[in-house]
């Protein structure tokens, strides 16, 4: 009984979500192997070998350079026969890849697993997190994506597992990578940050988001946004927190000028401490906030920044 975890990486380093998926895999009580698909990514495999896995499988191929689903799914499907579970993070990478893998293998799939009750029984949120389903998989091989924040990350050890180089499998032609536009950020990654400050439509403009960013820098926080703020062009798409954006569960979540729609709450209501700053005392966000401050955010933000200044 062996579980295969599919690594997410950028050909240079592993994405943190992979460490959490390995944490989930340890709950299954099986041996774990890790598949690294990419191009020029030997260093990723070497780092991954120290994560308590039995073996790292390395598949290098031009088609894997940009993690395209067509090549990736073909590679995973060709390997899958020997495993009881196939796991990947429920990030855009894993969500793109794993259903394709499952269908190639004629298997169902369980998305966004937040707890493992038994090797065939998994817990996952449905209806934007307003209900929790416990699902038993009836397939011989369980294909899962795992919500990273729900599981502890594994820590690298001293011992390095062997790296086995696989013959690359090319997927069907038809998909070509043209380019990408990544949002540069000096701040911690949203999904793994200890503190997240999110802004909504109440910020009023893109320039006002700078107020949040200054406060975020003071707290070492990541900056998130509601869908309304993204749609209004105040913040980039990849900052969206919610059912259709990123799911976060930081120690501290500060919601500024956002009402707290169901879809937004789905992305942050597992945060340990929630603070809401909103001038509308009836905003739904106050129903989940541990600390609520009914006030104008344009008064509150500079004041918070001042009070959090070093030495104050």
């Amino acid at each position: 009984m062996t579980t295969l975890v599919i690594a997410e990486h950028d050909n240079e380093s592993l994405k943190p979500a992979t460490l959490h998926v390995l944490g989930a895999a340890t709950r299954l009580g099986t041996d774990i192997e890790l598949l690294v698909m990419g191009k020029g990514c030997r260093a990723v495999a070497e780092a991954a070998a120290r994560l308590g896995v039995r073996k790292v499988l390395l598949a290098e191929h031009a088609g894997h350079e940009h993690q395209l689903a067509e090549a990736g799914a073909a590679q995973v499907a060709a390997l899958a026969g020997g495993y009881c579970h196939l796991l990947a993070p429920a990030t855009t990478f894993g969500k793109n890849l794993m259903p394709r893998v499952a269908a190639l293998l004629d298997l169902g799939m369980v998305s966004e697993v937040i707890a493992i009750e038994a090797p065939d029984t998994f817990v996952r949120p449905i209806y934007a997190g307003n209900a929790i389903a416990t699902v038993q998989s009836l397939d011989a091989i369980k294909v899962l994506t795992v919500r990273a924040i729900a599981f502890e990350a594994v820590m690298p050890g001293e011992q390095a597992a062997p790296i086995e180089v696989l013959a690359p499998v090319a997927g069907p032609a038809g998909s070509r990578f043209l380019g990408e536009e990544l949002s540069p950020s000096e701040r911690p990654e949203l999904t793994s940050a200890r503190v997240v400050i999110s802004g909504g439509r109440g910020l009023g403009s893109k320039d006002n988001f700078a107020l949040l960013e200054r406060l975020a820098d003071r707290l070492g926080a990541a900056v998130g946004a509601s869908r309304a703020a993204v749609d209004a062009g105040f913040a980039a798409n990849d900052m969206q927190v919610g059912q259709t954006g990123k799911i976060v569960a930081p120690e501290l979540y500060i919601a500024v000028g956002l009402s707290g729609a169901i879809q937004h709450l789905a992305g942050m209501k597992d945060s340990r401490v929630i603070v809401a700053i909103n001038k509308d005392a009836e905003a739904p966000i106050f129903q989940v906030a541990d600390y609520g401050l009914v006030a104008d955010l344009f008064d509150v933000l500079p004041e918070l920044e001042r009070q959090l200044a070093p030495g104050s």
Partner: peptide, 17 residues
């Protein structure tokens, strides 16, 4: 391919101040 064993409400957060 799967069977839903149960569906439950999510844990409720305690009201804050």
């Amino acid at each position: 391919h799967s069977r839903v064993l149960r569906v439950t409400p999510p844990p409720v957060r305690k009201a804050g101040i």
